[in-house]
Design a protein around this nucleic acid. Structure first.
Lengths: 180, 180
DNA sequence: TGACAATGCGACATTTTGCCCCGCTGTTTT
DNA sequence: AAAACAGCGGGGCAAAATGTCGCATTGTCA
């Protein structure tokens, strides 16, 4: 881990408990950590210095972390950008990588996983494919996320498009996605 | 759909039933379709001509579809490459995009979804409106049928694979007038 | 034949859902 | 500016779906 010594990490997440713990773990590993609790705050940080790596939460109070990725990537081509979210979906993962993220991890993830994901830049065609098909619940979650993205996050429109009650969709969205 | 007329599509998937249906649907839309049932076969096709777009399955008998993506991308920067798999996961989605895929879709997906994912860039107002996304129920139904077939009709095994209770799967299978 | 998995189904507790109704916040219309 | 409108989040409640357990029956295979 010595090669991490002194590297600057920007953590963007509006969960104070999460950022506190992660920041501490990263500092213990010798990183220089800055925390931003919103996209706006992150933009301000960017105007003062350019971090070497960044972790970005997707679901935040105000703007989505996705909107921050282009700014981060514009600030530096070398920056390692990791998207980290408790509401992971294939749709947002694809979107994030296309926007220039280096990697994408579902929460919960510990500090070592995060560092590993930040370090693994090169794609590997030989990673193994799941042997299990998706669970129905997971498939539903992915589908909902896709349609939601197509409707720019408009819950009402998505519910209409899916022929599902808005209240039900709202409840489903507030839950964490199922594993696997 | 006229802008699709005559475009060459390469379908890489080792499921004969799937390729047959998809090829037919795509031909009906005016595409020129070639099918490869393995990565090797796809490589051979590539040495003959360069398609405008390709759909690639991940889980195939021999090599994973992921290994094909660099070849496809090397053959042309313009090619639309869609990864399409019943064994979708965030990990492989991220890898696929990093390797140069244009998009990534979990199966089941119908022909229109696939075309959309391959990058319809035309601002066609009608398409958006009448193109309803698949309802969650139908999506679920198709997925269940697929996995059930993979397990030779074994309900218990299917329920395990789908992470769903056997009793629930049983009930779903019994009373299902397949509504859209 | 014995062992074992799979099936169909009843019964019941738990969870999810559909539905109606708020209040609040922006945006568009009048 | 006021009113009308759309979207969001959420409370509460009845109806429906699901998870769970148990049990008798039916393959299947060595």
């Amino acid at each position: 881990m010595t090669e991490l010594e002194g590297k600057r990490l920007l953590i963007v997440d509006d969960d104070p408990a999460f950022t506190r713990i992660l920041a501490r773990a990263m500092k213990r590993r010798g990183l220089e950590v800055t925390v931003a609790h919103s996209v706006e705050e992150a933009e301000r940080v960017l105007s003062t210095f350019i971090p070497d790596m960044a972790t970005v939460d997707l679901k935040m109070e105000t703007a989505s972390g996705l909107t921050l990725i282009p700014s981060l990537r514009a600030a530096s081509n070398e920056m390692k950008i990791l998207v980290l979210t408790g509401y992971a979906s294939i749709t947002t993962a694809v979107e994030a990588i296309k926007l220039g993220a280096t990697n994408y991890l579902p929460k919960p993830a510990d500090a070592d996983e995060i560092l590993a994901a930040l370090g693994k830049t090169q794609p590997d065609p030989d990673i193994e494919v799941n042997q299990q098909p998706m669970s129905v619940n997971r498939l539903e979650w992915e589908h909902i996320q896709k349609v939601l993205a197509e409707h720019d996050g408009n819950v009402s429109a998505t519910a209409r498009a899916l022929g599902m009650h808005r209240r039900t969709l709202q409840r489903k969205l507030s839950k964490r996605p199922v594993k696997q």
